[in-house]
Design a protein around this nucleic acid. Structure first.
Length: 271
DNA sequence: ACCCAGGAAATTC
DNA sequence: GAATTTCATGGG
């Protein structure tokens, strides 16, 4: 069994990063490690001091995992810059200083955030699990890859009944078909100007401004993205009145993740 | 029974 | 055009 080790890791916490609402396929194990499937590979992640251990990962995929956990970006420096903007920003970053923005599979980010609309995180995870079990490739150990666009594109909305995603079924199928046909080119969107990228994603039924921003931030690593969901809108009026997403600069998306998690963990403050 | 959930589409005013 | 309702499903 293979394993990769990353040394001298800072500003990183697996629990904070994998349980802050940006991804839906990681599970905390009884021993405190996290099991997940990424890019069709099943791994178990453990942070031992300043060493990140990825059990089940291959050495030839080192660059992929470094990118996935965004290990090349100095989050300490980012936090300093953001914290200087506003005292509440500093408080949010201090609350969960180990959050990083993952580079998820773009198609997975698209589908999971379509599923996220008018939904809660617990149920989103269940729907995503069932989607993978029913339509993803088995990769051993009872694990499944995230379904491909072409597999889902061949289905009809009613074929998704077993995953119990309700009115989102037709949104998922429309997204898969547009991606499969190249009508929405996720890799081309990666380098488009932000507004054009957003407009292209919004040609999919069921993708509005907020879901498009999530796909850009979590799937295409556009760190200027600033998804405004109900929690973020509350936080902006309560804590950052008068501030605009663009005021957070090129790392606005990272600021957003600190704030989102902080708001959700302090819901009494935002009612 | 009622309300809400990391929204967006459909309908109504 | 802006405001309101509806859309499945599950948990509190």
């Amino acid at each position: 069994m293979s394993m990769i080790i990353f040394e001298h890791i800072r500003d990183f916490d697996l629990g904070e990063t994998l349980s802050c609402g940006q991804s839906f396929r990681w599970r905390r194990q009884g021993d405190g490690s996290f099991a997940g499937v990424v890019y069709g590979r099943r791994v178990t992640a453990v942070l031992d001091g300043d060493r990140l251990l990825l059990d089940g990962a291959d050495e030839e995929d080192r660059a992929l995992w470094e990118a996935y956990f965004d290990l090349a970006l100095d989050y300490g420096a980012v936090k300093e810059r953001l914290s200087a903007l506003h005292p509440e920003m500093a408080a949010a970053a201090h609350y969960a200083p180990g959050i990083r923005i993952l580079r998820q599979e773009p198609f997975e980010a698209l589908i999971t955030f379509i599923i996220s609309q008018n939904n809660n995180i617990k149920r989103i995870e269940g729907i995503v699990d069932r989607l993978c079990e029913h339509f993803g490739e088995p990769i051993g150990g009872g694990a499944y890859a995230f379904p491909t666009a072409s597999r889902l594109a061949a289905l009809e909305p009613d074929d998704l009944m077993p995953i119990r995603a309700g009115f989102r079924h037709r949104y998922i199928i429309d997204a898969a078909r547009k991606v499969d046909a190249g009508e929405v080119d996720l890799e081309a969107i990666r380098t488009l100007p932000y507004d054009e990228a957003r407009r292209s994603l919004m040609t999919i039924t069921g993708v509005g401004v907020k879901v498009a921003d999530c796909v850009l931030l979590y799937g295409l690593h556009r760190l200027e993205g600033f998804p405004l969901d109900v929690w973020m809108k509350r936080a902006m009026t309560t804590l950052f009145d008068g501030m605009d997403p663009s005021d957070f600069g090129e790392y606005a998306g990272i600021a957003q993740q600190y704030i989102f998690h902080y708001a959700r963990m302090h819901d009494a403050l935002f009612r």
